[in-house]
């Protein structure tokens, strides 16, 4: 017979034992482990979700703060730019002002220096001219320069036209004060006499004449009374020479000022 009932019974017992053993050593531990892992994963996922939400909140907060910071930065930057611009303008103005002051001082100094130079030059030229004229007149005419100056002065008095002569006469006659004859050098007695004679001739009357030495006239001689005077001096020619020199030097001076 194919069925052995003892074996059937034994196999049933075997199978029931197997079921119990496998439940004990296989299904329950495995299913418990899987459940534990699922719980663990679920907890991890929940934790990850919570962290994600927290991270999102922090991200939002950070972005908000970042936006605020950017806005503040832009405001501060614009304020700073305005302040920098104002400060720059202020510094430029100050520098320009300082530059103007320095330039002005420099110009003044230069003008002073030029003036001084001109004075020196003028004096030198006059002295040179005087010396040359003296030497030339001495060599040519055999007379001293003072004689020639007196001669020229007297000639000019003689050569006055009628209008000038009348005017001079009326002015000097009306003046109650002394007549002054000023010269850069000491006049000899002859010269004084000649001068007094010519004055008398022009005024038509005797007037007291006071002779004075004024070195600043430089080879000149003048007749004056009460604010009016008639003069001749080498300084007049030198003044003309100076004006001519100034005219010539004017473009160079302007260029230096620029």
């Amino acid at each position: 017979m194919l069925i052995d009932w003892f074996t059937v019974f034994a196999q049933i017992i075997n199978f029931l034992i197997l079921v119990w053993l496998l439940k004990r050593f296989l299904y329950r531990p495995i299913l418990n482990a899987i459940d534990a892992r699922e719980k663990h994963i679920a907890l991890a996922l929940a934790d990850a979700d919570a962290k994600k939400i927290e991270a999102q909140q922090e991200c939002d907060e950070f972005q908000c703060k970042n936006a605020t910071f950017e806005k503040q930065r832009a405001v501060y930057l614009s304020q700073m730019m305005v302040e920098v611009k104002e400060e720059r303008q202020r510094l430029l103005d100050a520098a320009r002002q300082e530059s103007d002051v320095l330039r002005s001082r420099q110009q003044q100094a230069w003008v002073r220096e030029q003036q001084s130079l001109n004075d020196v030059l003028s004096r030198n030229v006059r002295e040179e001219v005087f010396a040359i004229a003296r030497k030339t007149l001495t060599d040519l005419a055999g007379a001293t320069l003072e004689e020639r100056v007196v001669d020229v002065f007297l000639r000019r008095l003689h050569e006055l036209n009628d209008g000038d002569r009348v005017e001079l006469k009326s002015v000097f006659k009306a003046s109650p004060r002394l007549l002054y004859v000023r010269s850069a050098f000491t006049l000899s007695a002859v010269h004084c006499t000649r001068i007094e004679a010519v004055i008398k001739e022009i005024l038509g009357e005797e007037r007291a004449v006071q002779f004075e030495i004024v070195p600043a006239l430089i080879s000149g001689i003048e007749l004056s009374s009460d604010g009016h005077k008639l003069a001749w001096s080498i300084a007049d020619y030198i003044f003309s020479l100076k004006q001519s020199l100034d005219e010539r030097l004017k473009p160079e001076i302007e260029m230096m000022n620029k």
């Binding site: 197997l18 053993l21 296989l26 495995i30 482990a33 892992r37 663990h40």
Partner: peptide, 15 residues
């Protein structure tokens, strides 16, 4: 079956 199961499940990992 039983010994194999026991050998594996005696040190199960839940991680």
């Amino acid at each position: 079956l039983v010994v194999g199961s026991w050998l594996v499940t005696r040190k199960l990992s839940t991680g």
